[in-house]
Design a binder for these strands. Structure first.
Length: 768
DNA sequence: CAGTGAGCGAGCTTCCGCTTGACTT
């Protein structure tokens, strides 16, 4: 019977550590926190030193029961939760919940799961640091007070079920402010010039003018200057440069790279990483640390040496720049560098590959690069073109890994320049001046929002993914892909002694999986910024973190820190309760409806953003829901009035009305109770009855192709070919055909029978 | 894939940070 019990936070970790220790040790886990403030109640006594009431969470009752049993059998209990604020609190809660006394309890910490580190930790036990525990209690109580005092105000003033908090409200604010920045962005155009010169053997040298022209006239004037000018290599320089590898992954950088390179959402990345961790392929995936254990560094070195040769190995240590990092774990790395595949699950493997490459590259040499820049003079202008190229002299870490960037303008890989000589005269092939436009800051992706939050020290590795999903669940933010719009640009081409001006078009503003705020988010954000500027201030977290640090050092009592915050905070809570609902969600007057002479309003209604024609006391007032992507704060009266043209009676086909409208899934026409989606080329506002009729007929033939079998006298039941194979359509029910039945042989009776045996769709069960 | 939008009022919602499965299709 082992006489030592070690309790860590994660079961996967427990399993590994148990392998390192002898028979005298039993290693088990607490599955994270075991006690917390109860869910349904503030549970903080604000009158009494902010005394919190904790309870064992419902899902941890069994864990505590099991732990109690193990404690009884053990002599010494090692509390081995993480070495950070939350970990210290977990140890303390465990000690309280398990009724441990000081003589049987030891606190141990380690920052990597290696045999050495664990054995070392067991030699260096200490007691629980209550100052650190108190810093955690301050953090916990502050978050509870902020969340549970502000959220109910939102329920009353705006809408039920809404929420506010130190982290999520800042995340929403960032997205709202970015959207407004984009809306008010004034795009300027300018003209850049590029040139092509003919070289020997049909080769072409591409060069760019380093400056841009602000106007069309200036660009034109420059091209005219160049017409007939002589071009020559004025200067040829080569410069050595180098590139260094990126550090190994933390949670947030993993989320960013997996998003850019693999297209994963942050929660998808975390689910896959969890699986890799549980199967022992990678180290812990919720970390802010860049450190690698000594064992890992030397394992990487030998893997690199055996794979690429010793010249590629370079021992590196990385230091985090983040002030908020707690570094309780290692960076994310493979547990065994010799393993370069994680098994057969496709996406797990892709993520593992990314982690493996990044960690390995972080211990490899710099890439040595030689840059060549050719400066090209123009006989009758002071300006000059430049052409640049790169030669990789030594690839170093580039052999395995190239980091991607968020920057959409990032330069593509440069090739080598062809052989050139100073003084060489160049023959101009053509010059192109193309209008380009300045771009606003981009909308956030899930991963770039995480990056921003991390930079501001807001949130923790374990909460990035849940925060992103919370703000979507609350209806503040939606992740959408939106089509771009066509935009014209001007282009001049100088070739063969003459300049041609053309107007061309390009698609701009295409957004893939980007975060858009909703109207609710804007109203909530403005309310919070107005009434709780302190809490949604971008540096609020950083400021309170400083105070938590002082508490952790024993320099400040936690209840007085919370007291000082709460006194002011609670006053603003009380003040904000006095604000009228109608002041929070103001209707915007767009103007007058030319048809009726009534006022047109935009506001957030009971069912979402709405346009209203006529005052509230008008019995004939009309409403129309706003469409996706339209905002109360900037919709124009033209756009608003357009909404009233739908639904629109298009005409009559087969004695039934054809109606055009825009639904949840886009524009459609409805006929005889059926919906027909409109293609991009058809507009519900202008579609004619002929076009609609054609569409209906066409969709019917598509349906006819899917039809396997129909029954005379019962048009409720059909056998069809679906996306997932043949199925029976019985009214609104779709029924799978059993494998042993041939769909074309089914009788009506068999179909009815199968349909009746199939239970009603239960839909998505509500989760607790 | 509708059009809806009054007012009353009961009873619900909510935070952040640690952990895994339990749910669906």
């Amino acid at each position: 019977m082992p006489k030592n019990l070690v309790i860590v936070e994660s079961p996967a970790k427990a399993k590994t550590i148990e392998g390192y220790l002898g028979k005298e040790f039993k290693v088990t886990s607490s599955y994270g926190h075991v006690r917390d403030l109860p869910k349904g109640d503030l549970a903080v006594d604000v009158e009494n030193g902010f005394l919190p009431t904790y309870e064992v969470q419902a899902d941890k009752k069994a864990v505590i029961k099991e732990l109690k049993k193990l404690v009884k059998e053990a002599e010494i209990i090692y509390l081995a939760s993480d070495d950070d604020r939350e970990g210290e609190a977990i140890s303390w809660h465990l000690k309280e919940a398990l009724d441990l006394n000081d003589s049987q309890t030891r606190r141990i910490v380690f920052h990597e799961i290696t045999k050495n580190a664990i054995q070392n930790a067991l030699q260096n036990t200490r007691t629980i640091n209550l100052d650190l525990v108190n810093a955690q209690q301050a953090r916990r109580v502050l978050d509870r007070l902020v969340g549970f005092e502000i959220s109910p105000i939102l329920w009353r003033k705006i809408k039920g079920g809404l929420s506010a908090g130190r982290v999520q409200s800042v995340a929403v604010r960032l997205v709202v402010e970015r959207e407004r920045e984009i809306d008010s962005f004034d795009s300027r155009s300018s003209f850049k010039v590029s040139a092509q010169f003919n070289l020997e053997k049909g080769k072409v040298l591409v060069a760019e003018l380093p400056r841009k022209f602000e106007t069309e006239d200036q660009a034109m004037a420059f091209l005219e200057e160049c017409n007939g000018a002589d071009f020559f290599i004025k200067k040829l320089e080569t410069k050595p440069s180098k590139k260094s590898p990126a550090p190994p992954f933390t949670t947030s950088t993993l989320q960013q790279e997996a998003s850019r390179k693999l297209g994963f959402s942050v929660s998808q990345t975390m689910t896959l990483a969890q699986k890799l961790y549980e199967s022992g392929k990678i180290t812990y995936m919720r970390t802010d640390s860049l450190n690698l254990s000594e064992e890992a560094v030397s394992a990487a070195a030998s893997a690199i040496t055996s794979e690429f040769g010793s010249g590629y190995s370079q021992n590196r240590k990385y230091k985090t720049k983040s002030k908020s990092a707690q570094e309780a774990h290692e960076a994310i790395r493979p547990t065994d560098f010799r393993v370069n595949s994680a098994g057969k699950e496709y996406n797990e493997n892709r993520l593992y590959d990314l982690i493996w490459k990044r960690a390995l590259a972080s211990q490899m040499g710099d890439a040595q690069i030689e840059k060549t820049i050719a400066t090209i003079g123009i006989s009758n202008s002071d300006l000059h073109f430049t052409a640049s190229g790169e030669v990789i002299k030594f690839d170093g870490f580039l052999k395995v890994y190239i980091e991607s960037t968020d920057d959409e303008d990032s330069e593509e890989q440069k090739g080598m320049l062809p052989p050139l000589a100073e003084g060489q005269v160049l023959e101009m092939k053509d010059l192109t001046s193309r209008e380009s436009f300045t771009r606003s800051a981009p909308r956030y992706t899930e991963a770039s929002l995480v990056k921003k939050l991390e930079e501001m020290g807001i949130g923790r590795p374990s909460t990035y993914a849940p925060t992103i999903s919370t703000i979507q669940k609350r209806g503040y933010i939606s992740k959408e892909t939106r089509e771009g719009k066509e935009r014209n640009y001007i282009q001049f081409v100088l070739a063969n002694g003459s300049i041609k001006r053309t107007t061309r078009s390009e698609i701009t503003g295409y957004e893939k999986q980007k975060l858009f705020p909703t109207n609710i988010a804007m109203v909530v954000n403005d309310f919070l910024v107005d009434h709780f500027p302190n809490v949604v201030d971008f540096s609020f977290t950083a400021n309170v973190e400083k105070e938590f640090d002082e508490i952790a050092l024993g320099e400040k009592p936690w209840d007085s820190m919370i007291g000082a915050f709460y006194d002011k905070f609670h006053l603003t809570v009380e003040e904000s309760k006095l604000v009228e609902r109608s002041d929070v969600n103001k209707a915007r007057v767009l103007g007058e409806d030319p048809a009726s002479g009534k006022q047109v309003y935009a506001r957030l209604g009971k069912f979402g953003p709405v346009i209203q024609i006529g005052n509230s006391d008008d019995d004939d007032k009309k409403f129309a829901s706003m469409r996706q992507g339209q905002f109360v704060e900037n919709i124009t009266i033209e756009e608003a009035l357009d909404l009233f043209q739908l639904p629109r009676n298009v005409g009559v086909f087969e004695e039934e009305e054809v109606v055009a409208a825009i639904g949840k899934f886009g524009p459609y026409v409805r006929h005889n109770g059926k919906f027909y989606s409109l293609g991009k080329e058809l507009d519900p506002l202008s579609i004619t009855i002929d076009e609609a009729t054609e569409l209906i007929k066409m969709k019917r033939t598509v349906d006819a192709n899917m039809l396997i079998k129909a029954f005379d006298g019962n048009d409720e039941i059909q056998v069809l070919n679906g996306r997932y194979g043949p199925y029976i359509k019985a009214g609104k029910k779709n029924v799978r055909i059993p494998k042993d039945q041939k769909p074309e042989d089914l009788t009506l009776e068999e179909c009815v029978d199968l349909a009746e045996k199939t239970p009603e769709k239960r839909g998505k069960g509500k989760r607790k």
